[in-house]
């Protein structure tokens, strides 16, 4: 029973990381109808920048600074990168009205980021100490890592906060208006370009925070974002790209399926059930579990 509970908590923590990145996909998809394939690598930038400011690379020990410094730095760096990816990869594709160039452009952006981090920083894996300590605490006989609880708490908070912002504030409504109909939104005086830029900056900032959050339960390395980004993408599709809360459910499904497959079947195959679920969802519910059905007009 204790083991089961432990599995559920680590599966949920893992799933919430996916959900956060997937939420980033959701934010930019709703405004631009594109997927930012570099988001996984921008998560990595969050982890790496956090590491540089919080940990000592040579000794592997914390520098003893407050965790807020890296958090603020990551928010700034990642927002700027979000603007950069929008300007270099997404905006030109949207202007050209070409259906797939953003796929390749954002993939290319991610490759560049990863390659530069590898060459300028390091190709090795590093431990990142959790500010809450790295030893499990006992809660009702179950050993739980405080970082896992932090991940769950912060992720759910971010998703709810942004969703509330989207639904309740005038700016949030402007974002929804742009996603519904760009031209009409522009006629209503909404600065469409600003909304697009902001959505990219917000999504990459969230990915950066996800990078710091996940670092203590994995390692920090230039390649840490690759699989996270892909799995989060799967989560986004399973949950329904259009639905913010769908990301939480999708993340939960994938995170739990992973920890349980790793524990009871085989570590090597832990990713497979999630991907099979993805293909099934695409075949039978193309707009995801919580997506809106689109009626095609001819």
């Amino acid at each position: 029973m204790a083991e089961l509970l432990q599995l559920i908590i680590s599966g949920t923590a893992q799933g919430m990381i996916y959900a956060l990145i997937a939420f980033g996909y959701n934010i930019t998809f709703s405004t631009s109808r594109t997927i930012n394939f570099s988001l996984g690598n921008l998560l990595m930038v969050g982890g790496v920048v956090g590491f540089i400011l919080y940990m000592d690379k040579a000794t592997g020990q914390p520098l003893g600074r407050t965790i807020w410094l890296p958090i603020v730095a990551v928010l700034i760096v990642n927002s700027l990168l979000g603007l950069l990816v929008y300007k270099t990869s997404v905006e030109p594709s949207l202007k050209r009205n070409s259906e797939y160039s953003w796929v390749l452009a954002t993939l290319a952006f991610g490759l560049i980021v990863r390659n530069l981090v590898e060459q300028l920083w390091s190709t090795n894996d590093y431990r990142f100490s959790s500010p809450l300590g790295d030893s499990p605490v006992r809660i009702a006989g179950v050993g739980v890592y405080p970082q896992e609880l932090l991940i769950i708490g912060v992720s759910v908070f971010i998703v709810f906060a942004v969703e509330l912002f989207r639904r309740k504030t005038i700016f949030g409504k402007a974002v929804s208006a742009v996603s519904e109909d760009k031209q009409t939104a522009a006629l209503m005086g909404i600065n469409q370009n600003f909304v697009l830029q902001f959505s990219f900056m917000l999504s990459t900032a969230i990915a950066g925070i996800a990078g710091i959050l996940v670092a203590p339960i994995t390692f920090v390395s230039a390649s840490m974002g690759l699989t996270l980004g892909i799995k989060a993408y799967a989560v986004a599709i399973i949950g329904g790209l259009e639905s913010g809360y769908g990301m939480l459910v999708g993340g939960l499904l994938l995170g739990l399926s992973e920890t349980f497959t790793a524990r009871y079947l085989s570590t090597g195959y832990k990713d497979t059930p999630g991907f099979i679920l993805l293909i099934i969802v695409i075949l039978f519910m193309p707009s995801g579990l919580f997506g809106k059905k689109v009626i095609k007009k001819v």
Partner: peptide
């Protein structure tokens, strides 16, 4: 090919990625 009948754009892209990763997992495992 079958997913390509139902899905396109970002939806199809992720399916093909998943397909490649599943095959790679099998090769490794």
């Amino acid at each position: 090919g079958f997913p390509s009948l139902r899905a396109s754009g970002p939806y199809l892209a992720v399916t093909t990625i998943a397909f490649g990763l599943i095959i790679n997992t099998i090769l490794t495992e």
